[in-house]
Computed example of a mutant assay.
Amino acid sequence: MNTTNSVGDSSFDYSALNKKADSKTSAMADQQETFLKLLVKQLQSQDPMNPMDNAQMTSQIAQINTVTGIEKLNEAMTNLLSAYGSSQSMQAAALIGKQVMAPQSSFEFDPEKKLEAGVTVPSDVSQVAVAIINKDGKVVDEMSGSVKPGEFLPFEWDGSLSDGTKAEAGTYYIVAKGINGEGKEVALTVNGWQQVKSVEFAKDGVQVNLASGSKVGFDTIQQVM
């Protein structure tokens, strides 16, 4: 039977856990040491009557400092992104079982209550038009107006039609379009309330699985109920 090392087993080599990090630090230190040795050798070998220009020496020292600074900056950014990813994963896990406002195209309308939805408005869009379409592809209601660029636009539909009647219960589709700064028409994302069933921690980011069967990115969630 296979056994695993216990916490107190002295045969386990804990130093192996830090070998990767130590090798990175050692490589950076070796690079600096090599540069300084070359610089000292250059100073020792220079012609006393024609010494190295101070500006040239300062430039070389600045170069190695720049390389070292970039290495440290990259390491800091990697640690920051790792911490952000962990934080995002914890936030996503807390959504399980809750209702969220996420991308959705079809809605089940109940005449006894209002249909709630929302439009994601890009930062370059200030005019939005929304169309509600029945299962036969007919536009049953429309709304439009000016909006604040980059602001999430929530709205409700009570099923009232232009002829004064009430829309029947069933499946409806909502399509939204906007006019950007160049005067071009662009399709906008429509969102609806959906329950979160589970979350996935993928390489390309946190994915949220919804009760409707769709999967959306965690960064597309607009509101949480």
Rank of each mutant, 00 (worst) to 15 (best):
residue 147 V to M: 08
residue 214 S to Y: 00
residue 114 K to D: 04
residue 29 A to S: 07
residue 143 M to D: 08
residue 8 G to A: 10
residue 19 K to V: 11
residue 86 S to F: 09
residue 152 F to W: 12
residue 152 F to Y: 15
residue 10 S to P: 04
residue 216 V to C: 01
residue 219 D to R: 08
residue 193 W to M: 09
residue 21 A to L: 13
residue 111 P to N: 06
residue 205 G to H: 02
residue 93 A to W: 05
residue 60 Q to D: 15
residue 142 E to S: 09
residue 85 G to R: 15
residue 16 A to R: 10
residue 176 A to E: 00
residue 6 S to Q: 02
residue 42 Q to S: 14
residue 177 K to F: 01
residue 164 G to K: 05
residue 54 N to I: 05
residue 35 F to H: 12
residue 51 P to R: 09
residue 11 S to P: 02
residue 13 D to V: 06
residue 37 K to R: 10
residue 128 V to P: 04
residue 213 G to L: 08
residue 24 K to W: 03
residue 42 Q to C: 01
residue 94 A to I: 04
residue 39 L to R: 12
residue 38 L to W: 05
residue 140 V to G: 05
residue 156 E to W: 03
residue 142 E to K: 12
residue 212 S to F: 01
residue 102 A to L: 03
residue 179 I to T: 15
residue 167 A to C: 12
residue 97 G to K: 04
residue 153 L to G: 02
residue 10 S to Q: 15
residue 70 I to K: 01
residue 219 D to Y: 15
residue 154 P to G: 10
residue 74 N to S: 14
residue 29 A to R: 05
residue 136 D to K: 13
residue 212 S to N: 10
residue 213 G to T: 06
residue 167 A to R: 13
residue 136 D to V: 09
residue 122 P to I: 14
residue 39 L to K: 10
residue 197 K to H: 07
residue 156 E to I: 03
residue 110 D to G: 07
residue 104 Q to D: 09
residue 118 G to T: 11
residue 65 N to K: 08
residue 200 E to M: 11
residue 152 F to M: 09
residue 160 S to K: 14
residue 17 L to Y: 15
residue 89 S to E: 04
residue 79 N to V: 09
residue 23 S to M: 04
residue 2 N to T: 10
residue 219 D to S: 13
residue 183 G to Q: 01
residue 102 A to V: 15
residue 105 S to V: 14
residue 197 K to A: 03
residue 90 M to C: 02
residue 145 G to S: 02
residue 158 D to C: 03
residue 184 K to W: 05
residue 143 M to C: 03
residue 50 N to F: 14
residue 26 S to A: 09
residue 172 Y to S: 01
residue 92 A to S: 06
residue 129 A to Q: 14
residue 4 T to A: 11
residue 193 W to C: 06
